[in-house]
């Protein structure tokens, strides 16, 4: 049944969507098409000679151990960032929903880091963890832990995870808090009368009712970890040491702009595009439909 009011169609609707369409075409469809086309070409380093090679770039790519390694790095990074981000934001939001006095101050403080650009956050953390002058590295040294993310791949990963979380936690926190506050208070009170303590109430009532929010955030966080962390990595580690923090987006940049392998880099972009499209599809299919209650 069509519920929407229907108006006679004239030129107006087209005119209204035209700017949006133009932007999408110029900034998305066109570059995406370029990347697709490029991924089928091999070009020499000076851009003089170009050859159409079908899917050779992809074959080379998936035979390249450094590319597969980059997948692994990305998976580790995305898992860490997403799980730690969601987990700590949820704990903070639950705590914030619980406190009465000073809740506003607390909220504001948690949201602040969101205003800091990721690259700047990465520079700040890199500086604090700097093995020679960083305050945190110094502190760790004092308790007997030697920190040098310029040499230690695991520590470099920890550094970019922390930098990534800096922006992600406030974002997730906001959504979780809004979600928690939209749960009717009487439900929580009913559970309290039914005998559930605060932790039990959270686990059996609040958390299940948050599941649509959690799922939405899960997808958004994954997309963030996959695609929006270029600035952080470039500012903090440049993908090193020994490619231990070279995630997929960073490798696209390295191979394309540093290694000047435009075809290979374009092929990587196409793979990334496929990933983001599938994440979006999952998002639409499940979030829209599978609301838990």
């Amino acid at each position: 049944m069509e519920k929407r009011t229907q108006f006679p169609v004239g030129w107006l609707p087209y005119a209204l969507v035209a700017p949006q369409l133009a932007i999408t075409i110029v900034f998305f469809i066109w570059p995406a098409g370029q990347a697709l086309w490029q991924s089928l070409l091999v070009q020499d380093a000076f851009g003089i000679h170009t050859e159409f090679v079908w899917f050779e770039n992809f074959q080379v790519l998936f035979a390249d151990p450094t590319y597969l390694e980059s997948f692994r790095v990305t998976a580790v990074f995305a898992t860490l960032v997403t799980s730690l981000g969601l987990g700590s934001a949820l704990v903070l939001a639950a705590a914030c929903d619980h406190v009465i006095r000073g809740a506003r101050t607390y909220q504001t403080l948690i949201i602040w880091p969101y205003a800091v650009a990721p690259a700047i956050a990465a520079v700040l953390w890199t500086f604090m963890f700097n093995p020679t002058v960083g305050i945190l590295a110094y502190g760790l040294e004092q308790i007997g832990y030697h920190w040098n993310h310029q040499l230690n791949g695991g520590q470099a990963m920890a550094l970019i995870v922390i930098s990534g979380l800096f922006k992600l936690i406030p974002y997730d926190f906001l959504f979780f808090l809004a979600g928690l506050q939209s749960i009717p208070k009487s439900l929580i009170e009913a559970a309290a009368i039914d005998g559930a303590g605060p932790v039990k109430r959270f686990l059996t009532i609040s958390f299940p009712l948050l599941s649509p929010t959690s799922f939405f955030l899960l997808v958004v966080n994954l997309v963030y970890a996959f695609f929006d962390t270029f600035g952080i990595i470039d500012a903090a580690t440049q993908g090193g040491p020994f490619r231990s923090t070279t995630v997929l987006v960073y490798k696209v940049f390295q191979d394309g702009f540093k290694g000047l392998d435009l075809g290979g880099s374009a092929a990587q972009s196409v793979v990334l595009m496929a990933i983001v499209i599938s994440l979006t599809v999952v998002q639409f299919r499940y979030i829209e439909r599978k609301v838990q209650y």
């Binding site: 009717p184 439900l187 009170e189 009913a190 009532i205 009712l209 209650y293």
Partner: peptide
């Protein structure tokens, strides 16, 4: 008043 049934 609003029953407060657990919706899930």
């Amino acid at each position: 008043q609003n029953y407060a049934l657990y919706p899930h």
